[in-house]
């Protein structure tokens, strides 16, 4: 239990570092839009998500309706539902309903990415990942909100690549092993470029959902995963 928790913390360190820098930017943004330091930190502590929070403080600042807030969060964050289903396939026997209710709070892109790469996921491993990541996300928000430019500019901008570097470290080794993963990476990246440069009216949250669903569906047809492959992993 304790070992699993510590393993989660260790695997969460890149997330911690990435979150620290990304949420630093969020803190600066939220205060700039008129929120207090406490409110900014409160949002990070209760939401633990980047794109949804940025859209959310925009709605608060503009005095939008609660319906608009709810719908925006739904669209941007619906990907977490897919991730939740995907991750539910990897949970070990100790993952009771109570553990699921708690751990679901921490399903973010990065935590999901690290957890789903495991053979089996235990509750305390998730708690390790979630707690170290949350500390990074909340303290980064606090620092950004309270004290704007603490880090030298070169350092904070170089930290912007940390999370993406971690993503590469997850999908490149997998693409090296499996033709299907290689194809899914190529298709998803290609579609993502199209959304970035051509279909720019589609919002970022939607674009990621479309890229992922299309790519995964195409690859599921072209490269169905066989059970014996799974046994080897």
């Amino acid at each position: 239990m304790k070992k699993e928790f510590l393993r989660g913390i260790k695997d969460g360190i890149p997330i911690f570092l990435g979150y620290l820098s990304v949420s630093f930017g969020f803190g600066i943004l939220a205060v700039g839009l008129g929120l207090s330091v406490m409110e900014s930190v409160g949002i990070s502590l209760t939401n633990l998500t980047s794109a949804g929070q940025v859209a959310g403080v925009g709605i608060i600042a503009a005095g939008g309706s609660l319906i608009e807030m709810a719908l925006t969060q739904l669209v941007i964050n619906i990907r977490y539902s897919l991730m939740g289903i995907s991750l539910s396939q990897k949970l070990d026997r100790n993952f009771t309903v109570a553990h699921r209710l708690i751990a679901s709070f921490g399903i973010t892109d990065e935590i999901f990415a690290v957890a789903v790469a495991q053979k089996e996921v235990s509750p305390y491993y998730m708690y390790g990942l979630i707690s170290v990541s949350t500390v990074g996300w909340v303290s980064g928000t606090f620092l950004g909100a309270a004290a704007g430019n603490i880090l030298p500019a070169e350092l904070s901008s170089a930290m912007g690549i940390v999370l993406y570097g971690m993503f590469l470290a997850i999908f490149i080794p997998a693409a090296r092993e499996s033709k299907g993963v290689f194809a899914s990476v190529l298709i998803a990246s290609g579609l993502s470029m199209i959304f970035k440069f051509v279909l720019t009216e589609v919002s970022g949250g939607f674009a990621v959902i479309i890229c992922a669903v299309v790519s995964a569906a195409v690859c599921a047809v072209l490269f169905p995963k066989k059970d014996e492959e799974e046994a080897e992993e």
């Binding site: 892109d109 789903v116 999908f171 899914s184 298709i187 790519s215 995964a216 490269f223 995963k225």
Partner: peptide, 21 residues
């Protein structure tokens, strides 16, 4: 659906990484 869910994380991550990185 099994294969679909297997590919989802890699597809999500690569779509988020490229070209954003």
């Amino acid at each position: 659906f099994k294969s679909f869910l297997y590919y989802i994380p890699y597809a999500v991550l690569s779509a988020m990484t490229i070209p954003a990185i």
